[in-house]
Design a protein around this nucleic acid. Structure first.
Length: 400
DNA sequence: CCTCCACAGGAAGCGCAGGAGT
DNA sequence: ACTCCTGCGCTTCCTGTGGAGG
């Protein structure tokens, strides 16, 4: 009673100083351990300032290895310089997850070139001509295509872009392609490949020590002084290093840990908060996995969860006693019951085995071949995560 | 040792949807 | 707009495998 709820919310104690600085989209001024990559990209793009077309560039590296952030940093600097010196250089960034076709990318490009005009609905030919017109004024256009593997007709896109360069006598168009999928290059037309990969660069994952330094830098920007314990940073770095050196998840983990501290009204972020936030992230990952699973696989998983909850639990396997181990056959029987209850069709046992294999690949279950003590040959199946949580998650999904 | 059990997983083929070709 | 093709999810059929039990 009394105090306004918004005032209360705003007055709330927080460990953050500038929360943006720990969001995954933030681009820090300093990018440690990426000097080499920054230099190379800079060297590659510099000719644009002298009116020469830079080489096309292909950047590869796992998620959270700094590809996007480094590229945005360098192109930002380039634009700064160009603006001050009135050079005819323009950079723009496209995430191909949202712009996943040649047409969409081209639209984005001309919109960038002529910001005051609207091009939606125009023919592909018109768009192409418009782009040529822009470059022909002697300008250099640098396109950054993030997640470039998501473009459906990439061969055509790259072909028509490189053809554009032949059609103009001044100016040029170059691109920086970014991907975390190295395999996708093999699916490309050889000409596309050689055009896109005039220069290539690999971004290695960060190790624990590097992650620690990155986190420290971000903590300084985003958190109030003394609110984050050293051990919390170390633990976060260790977690993220385990998970393939992804700096983005590291940053997210710490952000969440801070939010946890705030919501609990604690003024210091310690190991406990980091652990809690990791647990939460993991749960979300599991839930996301389950919700993208086909209905039938959800049923199989539910059968496994249900049996591990309600069976006697302990079984004697090769002398040892193990908890929550199930036979393939009993799971199939339970699955059939579930499917009938939900009025869904029942797949054959052969296909059920296929499901089991896939669930194992996703890491949701663990399987072993049966050994001594069990008649016949079967697979022993165990849930990879807490049965109750999985069971609840599937329950929610099935009541869609 | 042989047979049976309780499966594992390969091969072939079927029906269907959605994209390419014309 | 039409066919044709291809990939996908699935069933059917089949052979293989390691231990239990007589």
């Amino acid at each position: 009673m009394g105090e306004n709820i918004f005032k209360k919310e705003l007055d709330r104690e927080t460990v953050f100083r500038d929360k943006d600085a720990i969001s995954p989209h933030f681009i820090p001024k300093e990018l440690p351990f990426r000097e080499k990559q920054i230099n190379e990209i800079t060297k590659n793009l510099a000719p644009a300032l002298k009116g020469k077309k830079p080489n096309n560039l292909f950047l590869y590296g796992k998620t959270g290895s700094g590809k996007t952030v480094v590229t945005k940093h360098v192109t930002g600097e380039l634009m700064d310089y160009a603006k001050k010196n009135k050079e005819g250089v323009k950079c723009f960034y496209v995430n191909c997850r949202n712009h996943n076709s040649k047409y969409k990318v081209m639209i984005k490009a001309v919109k960038e070139a002529f910001p005051e005009e609207n091009f939606l609905g125009y023919s592909a030919g018109f768009i192409h001509d418009k782009l040529i017109e822009f470059i022909n004024e002697g300008k250099q256009l640098v396109m950054v295509l993030d997640e470039i593997d998501k473009v459906k007709d990439l061969d055509e896109l790259i072909y028509s872009l490189s053809r554009s360069n032949d059609e103009v006598n001044k100016g040029g168009l170059s691109l920086i392609g970014i991907s975390n999928n190295l395999m996708f290059k093999d699916r490309l037309d050889p000409r596309t490949k050689s055009s896109l990969c005039e220069e290539e660069m690999v971004f290695p994952p960060y190790n624990a020590e590097e992650l620690r330094a990155i986190l420290k830098q971000r903590v300084e920007l985003a958190f109030k002084k003394g609110t984050v314990e050293e051990t919390a940073i170390n633990l976060t770095a260790a977690f993220a290093a385990q998970e393939s050196g992804d700096a983005r998840t590291a940053v997210m983990l710490l952000q969440r840990a801070g939010e946890f501290a705030d919501s609990k009204g604690v003024s210091i972020v310690g190991e406990k908060e980091v652990e809690e936030s990791k647990k939460k992230v993991e749960e979300e990952v599991i839930f996301n996995m389950i919700s993208t699973l086909p209905e039938q696989q959800q049923l199989v998983l539910k059968a496994i969860a249900d049996l591990s909850l309600h069976s006697k639990g302990i079984r004697r396997i090769t002398g040892r006693e193990e908890f929550g181990v199930l036979y393939s056959g009993e799971i199939y029987d339970r699955y059939k019951d579930f499917a009938k209850n939900y009025n869904l069709n029942v797949v054959s046992s052969r296909w059920y085995r296929q499901y089991i294999n896939e669930l194992e690949m996703y890491g949701l279950i663990v399987t072993t071949s049966s050994g001594k003590g069990i008649k016949g040959q079967t697979r022993l199946i165990k849930l990879g995560f807490d049965a109750k949580k999985i069971s609840n998650a599937i329950e929610k999904e099935l009541e869609r």
